[in-house]
Design a protein around this nucleic acid. Structure first.
Length: 215
DNA sequence: CGCCAGGGCCATA
DNA sequence: TATGGCCATGGC
């Protein structure tokens, strides 16, 4: 059982989840901040409140106080309001232009995003993958939990796991998007703490495991 | 009523 | 490097 076979099995069972729900790259960036340790349904409420000003210019025009009021349903609103300002200020350096950002290297974009207060590894990689269509794998708590549960012994540390998994999968942004989405869907739909339940598509992998996360 | 969600920052050792 | 406290709402 390799990571690719795991992906194939999840894909066969759940299909293409069609992430990430958003109309523009900027909305994806905003959603990536708002969803930090927060249920997506709460994020949707916050996004709905922002609807009239869900553009970089619209967000920058809001006071910090007003912005935090609007995103209140997403929780951690005082922090996230500042984070959104930081991210939007960074985006301004690209003139809010997707094509301009596409001229920049993946490594440069990633280091710039990670330098922002409020953008950690998972948020940065979500933005790179879903907003900028770059082939970076998003590692979240679900991924580590799922791999541990099926006996794959994921390495400690975000980067170590990301590089190992990326090396074991075809370097495709579309596949990476589906991988992350499928891991989340699987984790939500299947038993949380038990090894695996009967209807789970990974029901037998407790025994086989993923051989050291190799391709 | 308690638990937790598609994290990240910061202080501490 | 690795914990622990903190941020906060809403659904179940």
């Amino acid at each position: 059982m390799t990571p690719l076979q795991l992906y194939a099995r999840l894909y066969r069972h759940y299909g293409d989840p069609g992430w990430w729900p958003a109309d523009t790259p900027y909305e994806i960036m905003v959603g990536a901040i708002l969803t930090q340790n927060t249920n997506w349904s709460n994020v949707e409420k916050a996004l709905a409140n922002l609807k009239q000003q869900l553009t970089p210019q619209g967000i920058q025009a809001l006071s910090l106080e007003r912005l935090s009021q609007l995103i209140k349903p997403a929780g951690f609103f005082n922090q996230k309001a500042r984070y959104l300002k930081n991210l939007t200020a960074w985006w301004a350096a690209y003139d809010y232009c997707w094509e301009t950002a596409q001229k920049q290297s993946l490594e440069k974009l990633r280091s710039e995003l990670l330098a922002l207060k409020g953008v950690g590894p998972e948020t940065a990689d979500s933005i790179l993958l879903y907003a900028f269509n770059r082939p970076v794998l998003v590692i979240d708590a679900y991924t580590r939990r799922l791999l541990s549960r099926i006996g794959a012994h994921p390495p400690a540390g975000y980067e170590a796991l990301r590089l190992r998994l990326e090396a074991a999968l075809p370097a495709s942004a579309e596949l990476f998007k589906r991988w992350h989405a499928l891991v989340v869907i699987q984790s939500k739909n299947c038993c949380r703490r038990q090894p695996l339940c009967h209807s789970c598509p990974l029901q037998d992998t407790c025994r086989t495991g993923i051989a050291e996360l190799q391709a």
